[in-house]
Design a binder for these strands. Structure first.
Length: 442
RNA sequence: GCCCCCAUCGUCUAUCGGUUAGGACACGGGCUUUUCAUGCCUGUAAGAGGAGUUCGACUCUCCUUGGGGGUGCCA
């Protein structure tokens, strides 16, 4: 009977959750779900300075937001202090560790590393790893102030939690040689290890907050979906082996394996993340999208009902054009208020031309007298007018109308836009723009 | 300095000795439509360098170079 797989995510709560860290959580989760094992959450809160209840709360919120559900109760490292110290004493008694007054700070407990032979292990992603014992050094396991050090606490907790696979960042490879000796000294089985490559910036250096958004919360605020971030991060250092990229959780769980993990660092590409977010937004249920849209309207101080037209139909037009929620309401503010902003560049390039006020007035009249105010009819009419004027395409008419009516150069299809706004409002906005151009206030 | 690891388009990656080295993002061109988008078609673009093993190397071995990690009474 195969042993039950048990993995863990063991962050120290620092208030913010770094993407490199959460990616380790994602890989742990993916592996646990793939093999039907358990995914545990251990909070390494031994740094009393930084481990505040708020920091722990933030961590848990990020986990929940990303759908990284863990099994069992949250395990707090501080609860194990007595046990850590007990084992340290045992190690001392058995001669695996010794006391020393290093640098005069008082006596600390130091673990003895071997001086001969090799220490080796098979990393699930990096392959066979080995180190000569002579290249290792003894290390402190209990500080002179009596507190257990990371190495001791981490290993001991993994033993008491019954962790079978340790999946963590590449920066821990060197620690592994120490930890293996600790497991052996304690007489516990050595778990399997999988070290994930680091996420780096454009310069190939570790990705930090200086490179842009580096914390989970920031991506959330910027309007990225949890599913997007999860999917994108899963693809940094792992690929299913075929050409799939946008995948469901189930597909990722099914396809996950360590031998498809890369051993080299991966760069974080904001552009691809944004593209993927657009894919996820386009696939969102309309109601969910509408709820997010409303949040952004409220945040912008706008009413949640459009000035005219059917909101559901309007959002259906906008949804497929949304890359991130941070873009909202942006160019779509014109559907909700008369106080929409005019983009300076758009005005300069499309409206500040000879005879524009007259043209806008002419168009206003034309719309006023159009027999029907519908997409197809309006499009045919403008096309006809353009041809009569000898224009090349509809651009010379469409661009000015768009800017006059919406303030910008992007948005939904122009004629759909006009119909949503309605005849009256369209005519009024065209005339107002013409007037402001004459006054020089636009 | 010493130790460990890594190396395919600009980026993320596929390839597990024999391929016109594939896909995606980004970028360029075209069509739908010289309106915003989408969609579709399409172009540019890669095995760091050098030895070796082999009938045959991106793939295996070694060296060089480049990059990353570690070298705390941090985690």
């Amino acid at each position: 009977m195969a042993e039950q797989v048990r993995v863990r995510f063991a962050p120290s709560p620092t208030g913010k959750v770094h993407i490199g860290n959460i990616r380790a959580a994602i890989f742990n989760w993916l592996y646990a779900r793939h093999v039907g094992g358990e995914f545990l959450l251990r909070v390494e809160d031994t740094d009393l300075e930084r481990s505040t209840p708020e920091a722990i709360q933030t961590l848990i919120e990020c986990m929940k937001w990303l759908g990284l559900d863990w099994d069992g109760e949250v395990f707090y490292q501080t609860s194990q202090r007595a046990h850590h110290l007990e084992v340290a004493q045992m190690l001392l008694d058995k001669g695996y560790a010794y006391k020393e007054n290093k640098g005069g700070a008082g006596e600390c407990v130091i673990f003895r590393m071997p001086t001969e032979g090799v220490i080796e292990f098979d990393d699930l992603v990096k392959g066979h790893m080995k180190k000569m014992a002579k290249d290792t050094q003894d290390f402190v396991i209990v500080r002179s102030d009596g507190s257990p050090v990371f190495h001791l606490a981490n290993v001991l907790d993994d033993i008491t939690q019954g962790v079978t696979h340790i999946i963590r960042g590449d920066d821990h490879v060197e620690n592994t040689f120490k930890h293996i000796m600790l497991f052996k000294a304690i007489g516990a089985p050595v778990p399997k290890y999988a070290h994930l490559p680091m996420i780096v910036n454009n310069a190939g250096k570790p990705y930090s907050k200086r490179d842009g958004s580096a914390f989970v919360g920031e991506f959330r605020e910027l309007g990225y979906l949890a599913d997007t971030l999860f999917n994108y991060l899963a693809l940094l250092g792992w690929a299913p082996g075929d050409d799939r990229e946008v995948m469901t959780r189930e597909e990722m769980v099914e396809a996950f394996s360590f031998d498809k993990c890369k051993a080299s660092p991966a760069r974080f590409d904001m552009k691809k993340l944004t593209w993927m977010n657009g894919e996820y937004i386009a696939r969102q249920p309309a109601a969910e999208y509408a709820a997010e849209f409303d949040k952004r309207l409220v945040a912008a101080g706008l009413p949640i009902e459009p000035l005219g037209g059917n909101k559901t139909e309007l959002l259906a037009q906008i949804q497929g054009r949304t890359k991130t929620y941070a873009d909202l309401p942006g160019p779509f503010a014109c559907f909700f208020t008369e106080e929409f902003p005019f983009e300076e560049k758009a005005v300069a390039s499309r409206l500040h031309t000879e005879g524009m006020p007259e043209l806008l007035d002419q168009l206003a009249d034309r719309f006023q007298n159009a027999p029907v105010f519908e997409v197809a009819a309006l499009e045919a009419d403008i096309k006809a007018l353009g041809e009569a004027r000898g224009d090349k395409g509809m651009g010379p008419l469409v661009h000015p109308i768009r800017v006059a009516v919406s303030g910008g150069m992007t948005g939904i299809g122009l004629f759909e836009m006009l119909v949503f706004l309605g005849r009256e409002r369209t005519v009024e906005r065209l005339k107002r723009a013409a007037q402001r151009l004459r006054e020089g206030t636009l």
